[in-house]
């Protein structure tokens, strides 16, 4: 099973390198355009269009606020701020993971007729959700600035944390998207996995307040670390846990390597198994 391209002379090796670069540039162009078009489609299939990108998270946060602050009358200081940061960050993980695991399989028809790198499909799902996350995140920052405290320099620490979160989501998405075409039951497994992650990532409780040995285990989950590293600078006026931030980044990079390798290896197999 070999697909190879002829390259004989040294000259063609140089032009091969250029072609390689041109190919990657083309992937980027396709990725951005596809992401932009997917967002455009979302605005066109609903009456309220892009207003939903604002309305939905605001409704969502309001429901949490209503339950925890008004019905349950939570007394823990800053609990609402704590909860909002957790929920908002989680709102990027959850849909990105469940949508991206079907992303390659859902393009079966296109894949049968046109050769295109399958990396594009999960990547555009992640970027699409990243865009929506940025909107809801700014709503959250506004809320914190109004009701919690004034923005300060520590807030800048959310930028590297955002990059770590993006890396992890890309990593998980590539890995999951690569498996689903071969195992159709996989999305159901992911559903359960996501639910379990939601419970242990410290959205509703403080991982750092747990007994040390338990906190250590919980912090092996990079999503828990991402949540902690958003909360420390935004709510606790504390610098983030840089060591754990590095850990999440490395964890994400490893997932990316595994996921990208799996997809690249099966580029010409997916179209056969998805038929």
């Amino acid at each position: 099973m070999i697909i190879k391209e002829n390259s004989e002379s040294e000259e063609s090796a140089i032009s091969g390198h250029q072609r390689h670069r041109a190919k990657w540039r083309h992937y980027w162009e396709l990725l951005w355009f596809k992401t932009y078009m997917d967002l455009k489609i979302e605005t066109q299939i609903t009456y309220l269009g892009f207003f939903w990108w604002f309305l939905e998270p605001v409704f969502f946060l309001f429901i949490y606020y209503y339950i925890f602050a008004i019905i349950l009358k939570t007394r823990t200081p800053y609990f609402i701020e704590f909860l909002f940061v957790g929920v908002v960050a989680w709102r990027w993980f959850a849909p990105a993971m469940s949508r991206s695991c079907r992303s390659i399989k859902s393009q079966a028809r296109l894949m049968r007729e046109i050769y295109v790198s399958k990396l594009i499909f999960p990547a555009s799902v992640v970027l699409n959700d990243a865009f929506k996350f940025v909107i809801i995140f700014f709503i959250l920052l506004t809320f914190l600035a109004v009701f919690h405290n004034k923005p300060n320099l520590l807030w800048l620490a959310v930028v590297p944390n955002f990059i770590c979160q993006l890396t992890i989501i890309f990593g998980y998405s590539f890995c999951f998207a690569a498996v689903t075409p071969f195992i159709p039951d996989f999305p159901l497994v992911i559903q359960t996995f996501t639910f379990a992650l939601m419970m242990v990532s410290g959205i509703f409780f403080d991982v750092l307040a747990a007994p040390p040995h338990l906190a250590y285990i919980l912090q092996l989950n990079p999503i828990a670390d991402v949540l902690i590293n958003y909360r420390l600078p935004l709510i606790n006026h504390h610098s983030p846990q840089w060591g754990y931030m590095l850990y999440t980044f490395v964890f994400g990079c490893v997932l990316n390597i595994i996921g990208i390798y799996s997809i690249r290896r099966n580029e010409r197999i997916f179209s056969k198994v998805c038929a």
């Binding site: 032009s15 049968r112 007729e113 010409r268």
Partner: peptide, 30 residues
């Protein structure tokens, strides 16, 4: 180059773009 063969060898000259003539795939209705 959409699927790879299960056995045997396919050699494509460098830089050659091959493609099916497709009519409706890749279109989004919206």
């Amino acid at each position: 180059g959409i699927v790879s063969p299960s056995r045997g060898m396919i050699t494509i000259a460098e830089g050659v773009r091959s493609g099916l003539l497709t009519l409706q795939s890749g279109f989004n209705p919206y």
